[in-house]
Computed example of a mutant assay.
Amino acid sequence: MRDPRAGSALEWISAAREPTTTASGLLGSTVIATPAQAEDDITVAPLAATATTAQEVARFWLADGAANLKNATPYAVQTEVQGERVSTPVAPDTKPGSVAPAPGPAEPKGKTPTTSGKVFFADADGQPHWCSGTALQSQYRNLVATAGHCVYDIQRSGTTLDKWVFVPGYADGTTPWGLYVGKQSFAHFDFSTYKDYDRDFAFVNVYNGVVSPSPDVLTDTGRLVDNVGGQGFAWNQPAVSLADVFGYPAGPNPDGRRPYTGQTLEWSTGPTSTMTLSGLPTDLFVGVESPFTGEGSLGSSWLYHYSGASRTGYLNGVTISVADTDGDDRYDTGVSPYFDGAVNIIYQAAARAWTGSIA
């Protein structure tokens, strides 16, 4: 059989070694994962590979008073699944571990994280759309986490979404800490090639932020995590009881009601559990009790041990869809792939990638 990686426009890298991180299990839940292979393939895909391309992307979003940001609509691809909570215990594939968060210098009012924001992109229809995302701690302080299908176009096999950027703290069309153009994405080979939703996550390296004080002028605002902080990262956590979910839900419930506008960051807290899904070809997923609707909340961060004082916690999931588990026509559960050692291998590779400035 022909190797599906041959002749691809993407760059394929095989990661076959354990990452060098400190294992420090967090306290936690009944959420447990299936064993992963010793080797996991990493897909590295270019988004805006050169500074010139990145400048064009930034201008697309910032031109005309950021009109494309303001006119973007929530991404409505694969937003709902059918599923139920279960208590299936399966052994993690490696030891649990974590990477500490990096609190940011920004101190706005409230206790929500400055790391959360919207990821914007253009779909195959050429129109602007958005998902949720969050800044993560990394070596070069330039990493964003979101759902895999908020980076890869699952409606066009083997391609990424266009003009990909991240805006932390987005609210009503503003870019309070600048706009960060994605340079490249790190994802799992099984998702980018086979649409394996057990691996529906992505890490994106972004260039330094920019603002546009006047037409055709871009000013550097610095590195992402230097400006807003970066969430920690945790994997193979066997005993987590609660997760704080942050995102920008905007779509309707099955009953037609719209409890969210998608214009400001929303926060929910709920217990986690394992889940089985009937609408997607998956093995084992994690669910969190959350009233977020699907459109807009794709890519929402799940933070364990979140502190309102430091505005940081440990990323251990991202919303890839939502479910109505009790049949009352209102969504009550967000779902995420389980973050096992395979996810950590991809995170570690992305955390070592440098980007730089485009201005």
Rank of each mutant, 00 (worst) to 15 (best):
R2C: 10
D3A: 13
W12V: 15
W12E: 03
L27F: 08
G28K: 09
V31E: 05
I32G: 14
T34F: 08
E39W: 05
T53C: 04
A54L: 13
A58T: 10
R59W: 07
N71Q: 09
A72V: 01
V86I: 15
K95P: 06
S98M: 10
S98H: 09
S98W: 04
P101K: 01
A106K: 04
K109P: 00
T114Y: 00
T115L: 02
T115Y: 00
D123F: 07
D125Y: 01
S138E: 04
Q139T: 15
A145V: 15
G148Q: 05
C150M: 05
C150R: 06
Y152R: 11
I154L: 04
R156V: 14
P168I: 08
G173F: 00
G182P: 08
T193R: 09
D200C: 03
D200F: 01
F201L: 07
V204C: 05
S212E: 13
D220V: 10
T221K: 13
V225E: 00
V228Y: 02
G232I: 10
S241K: 12
L242G: 06
G247R: 11
A250N: 02
P252E: 13
G256Q: 06
E266N: 09
S268F: 02
T274I: 06
T276D: 08
G279Q: 08
L298Y: 07
Y304S: 12
V318M: 11
I320P: 02
D324L: 05
D329G: 10
Y347F: 12
W354V: 08
I358D: 07
